[in-house]
Structure formats: C-alpha cells, structure tokens
C-alpha cells in the first residue's frame, strides 16, 4: 500500500508540475516542494491538495496545511501515509 501511495503522489506532482514521464521518479525524501518550485503558488498548492484528496480518498483539514506539510516530498508522503494508515 505504501508503495502505491508513493506512486500516486509522484503521479499527481507530475501532472500538476507538468513533468516529463519518469522525471518525478527522481524525487527523493529531501526534494524541496513549496518554496523551491516557483510554479507552486497558493492556487497551485490548493489544486495539488485537492487532487491528493480525490485520488487518495483522504480529507486534508485547513489546520494541517502548513509550511511543513509541503516543504519536502518526504514530508508530504509521510503525511499521506499517516492519513491512510
């Protein structure tokens, strides 16, 4: 299940960021997201979170959305895993 979450999350980031196939596979736990990727503005972050909710079947509350959540790929992945775990 954990691998599936990882793959789904990479696919979502790939779709939102318009990455080429395979590019998201290079993300590591330390890959920076919000603040590192200029295309991720507040509306794009909102779209990203909504897409994560839809595809993983989770609900992300307002108070869970903070700088930490989207700081790195690893942080976002572990948040989603906890939500589903």
């Amino acid at each position: 299940m954990s691998d599936t979450i990882d793959q789904t999350l990479r696919a979502i980031l790939s779709d939102v960021l318009g990455l080429k196939p395979g590019q998201a596979a290079g993300f590591t736990a330390d890959t920076g997201l919000f603040g590192h990727l200029p295309e991720l503005d507040s509306m794009a972050v909102a779209g990203l979170l909504t897409e994560i909710e839809d595809r993983l079947g989770i609900v992300i509350e307002d108070d869970e959305v903070d700088g930490e959540l989207l700081e790195t790929y690893g942080g976002l992945l572990s948040f989603c895993q906890k939500k589903l775990g």
């Binding site: 972050v45 909102a46 779209g47 979170l49 909504t50 307002d62 959305v65």
Partner: peptide
C-alpha cells in the same frame, strides 16, 4: 469543487 479549491487557495495565501 471549484469553489472549495479557490477558498483553499486563499487559505494557503493567508497562511
């Protein structure tokens, strides 16, 4: 859905 996303965008920007 569209509204929720725009509301969320504003919450993120406010934060």
């Amino acid at each position: 859905g569209l509204l929720r996303q725009m509301l969320r965008g504003r919450v993120v920007a406010a934060k």
